[in-house]
Structure formats: C-alpha cells, structure tokens
Amino acid sequence: MNNVLLFALLALGLLSVAAAIILYFVAQKFKVIEDPRIDSVDEVLPKANCGGCGFAGCRNFAEATIRSADLNKSIEGLNCPVGGNNVMKEVAAILGLTADEKDPLIAVIRCNGGKKHSPSKVQYDGATSCAFAHNLFAGEGGCPNGCLGLGDCEVSCNFDALFMNHETGLPEVNDKCVACGACVKACPRFIIEMRPKGKKDRRIFVSCINTEKGGPAKKNCSVACIGCSKCFQVCPYEAITMANNLAYIDPVKCKLCRKCVEVCPTDAIHELNFPPRKPKTETEVTTTNSTSESLA
C-alpha cells in the first residue's frame, strides 16, 4: 500500500519536473521580445477596444503610438477619443513626449424629422436594418436624407451612449458618448456627426442634412433646412456656410451667440444645454401690464 502511494507520488513528481524543464526551454526558445513600453501604454488605455482611434484595438493603438514616437518623435495624429486628453497625456508621459490638448467630441444627430415632424407616408415592413431600408426606399417620411429610425447606430454603440427613442423614432445621445465614431460609420445616411462638446456642453448645429430644394424638403419634413440662408446672413462670425441648399455651422468659428437659432424659419437649428431664454411675448405682456398700471 505504501509502495503504491510512494510510486504514485514519485511518478507525478518526476513528470512535473520534466514538464517544467521542457516548458522552460520552450519559453526560452520561442520568446517574443516586445517593447516593454507597449505594455505600459496599453495599461493606461481605456481597454474599450472600440476602434474609435482607427486601430483594431487598444493594443494596436499602443503599438502605433510607440512606432510613431520612435519614427517621428511625436504622437501627433494619434488620439484615443475614449480616454480623452487625460489618457493621451499619460501616454505621452510614458513615451517622454507631450500631447496636444484636444477638444472632446460628442456625437450629434443631424436629423430632427422622426415620427413627429416627418409623418410616415408609407410603412416599412422588413429587416430591422437602416442599411437595407436605405437601399430599398427613401424612408417612411419620404425624406431621402432623413433618419430611418431602425437603429443601426444603437446596435453599433458599445458605450450605452446612444439609444433610439421609440416615441420620436430618432436616436438620442447621452453623456456616456466617448466619440468613438462607431455610429458615424454605422449610419448609412451619414446623419451623425462628431462635433466638439463645446463650453459647458453647449452646442449649436443644423439638425438637418437634406440637400433637396426648399419645396420638396419642406413637403416631407416640417423641420427641414430649406436653404433659405437667413442664418448665413445673420451670423456675425462667418461660422455658417451654405452648400447644396443646406446650412452648416462650423463648430470652431461658432461663438454660440444663438442668433441663427432665432431666425431659422423651420426650427432646423438646434441649441443644446443653453439656459432658457426669456420668452419675448411674456416680457411684452408685462410691459403692457405695467403701462396699464401706470396709466391707472
């Protein structure tokens, strides 16, 4: 009995020693020499593997930064949108370089049609895929550039930052957005744009990308940009450009004065996170009241 135990232990022990020796030599033989900086850069990256930087994953991005640092002595052009400035600073510090400050970006939905403003004329009954519906027809509301509302962007978002609002039929972006750009690629109509977050998260943008002439655009959607150029004329900072019956606000030049929002006849220009304006009509009412009081 004791012998059995002893032999079993001995056999297992010898096997393990033999395996350990083999493993050691194999590990030596097939050792991959890797730059230790890759690991340390990889360490500080957010590990989302979202592809927002343009590389397949965080590790590829880390390798790219080191290549760039070795070749060009800078990591310009490489940016991790998820980690933002803080992470890029850390990466630069590891490589002994400095990183440029970049404005954080956020996804912006440039369509406000949806079920409310662009009521459906036909009914789609097929695969839940914007890409397919885009190939099939112009959209339930009839706008050839508008949101199809089938949620390809929602599927593409890995950060729980973009959801379809089923009441309006439009996607909505929340603060979790890290500007990885997956939704921009997923949208077959290029409705989603990455724009700077802006000061205090305030943003002004044209929420329409319809390039049709005013008439047809307005026919399909009550909040379409009809290319009337009113905003273009009123903008004091030359931030607005007109092309293909469509206004575009340059986020860099825009000083958030909100003049364009007021003149837009179709409410196509959106302002986000601004304090509510004093309603004009109300002030008029109060003034008349006060005059009447003074008269009395």
């Binding site: 036909v122 009914q123 097929g126």
Partner: peptide, 8 residues
C-alpha cells in the same frame, strides 16, 4: 391606406 414597403 398607407402602402407597405418591404424587400421581395
């Protein structure tokens, strides 16, 4: 009615 649209 509203026409229905789908692929073949």
């Amino acid at each position: 009615n509203k026409l229905t649209l789908s692929g073949s």
